[in-house]
Design a protein around this nucleic acid. Sequence first.
DNA 1: CGAAACTCCTGAGCGC
DNA 2: TGCGCTCAGGAGTTTC
Length: 268
Amino acid sequence: MPELPEVEVTRLGISPAVVGQTISAVTVRQPRLRWPVSPIVERLAGRRVKNVTRRAKYLIFDCGDGDLIVHLGMSGSLRVVPADTPVRKHDHVDIRFGKVLLRLHDPRRFGSVLWAPHGETHPLLAHLGIEPLSDELTGTRLRAMAVGHRAAIKQFLMDGRRIVGIGNIYANESLFLARISPFAPAGHISVARCERLALAIRTTLTGAIRAGGSTLRDFVGGDGKPGYFQQTYQVYDRTGAPCRACGSPVRRRVQGQRATFYCGSCQR
DNA sequence: CGAAACTCCTGAGCGC
DNA sequence: TGCGCTCAGGAGTTTC
């Protein structure tokens, strides 16, 4: 499930329970995730987590002499649970802090648990694009990045080498909010429309994070699934349903192996 | 260089 | 109830 808002809500949810705490044990039940779990991770006991930050969809735990880096992939979730919580299928990694532990659950195993020594940037994080919620994302910047690119704007938005954190759901939602066709060649979009798109991305992502804020306590405590949040989408997964703006049916098309949802009359 | 296809993995939902 | 098929929120790698 995790797109940037879910990752950010996870960060906010688990931070109070782990920041300032010392790792007492680590259990790796399944090291074969998207990338092999770094062997160092099993030897992290004794380190104190100084901070938890986020870069793109990576969660970064500052352990002093290095960073523990966690990506949730398509199906991953991180929760803080009592240390005696029974292990379920797909509970691959536990980072224990005394009486509680941070547990990674990931059925599809597209997530990853990595390590980067202090001062070094992990290769996977070395070529990431700009953060969509930073002030780097502006219409002019977007326009400058898109010039010369013939690829469809939706696929361009999902390319993490330009802008990070925009997954399939929010690419669809942002383009709807900006009233821009997902099929428009990225390089042909005017500055004015890029301005609208930059604003739409910011609005969509911050709105989703705010919606997730109400479920923060779901990340600490019980042994259920993280609540994430039930959002009402404008177009995502609404094939055939009436566009919330004009009433014409939402359409679905496959674009670059991913489903694209859009309103053919609102988005041009 | 850019763009598109391919790949990893499990589970849910659907038609029969 | 079971089987086979399709699809799913990511993103690095390969191929053209």
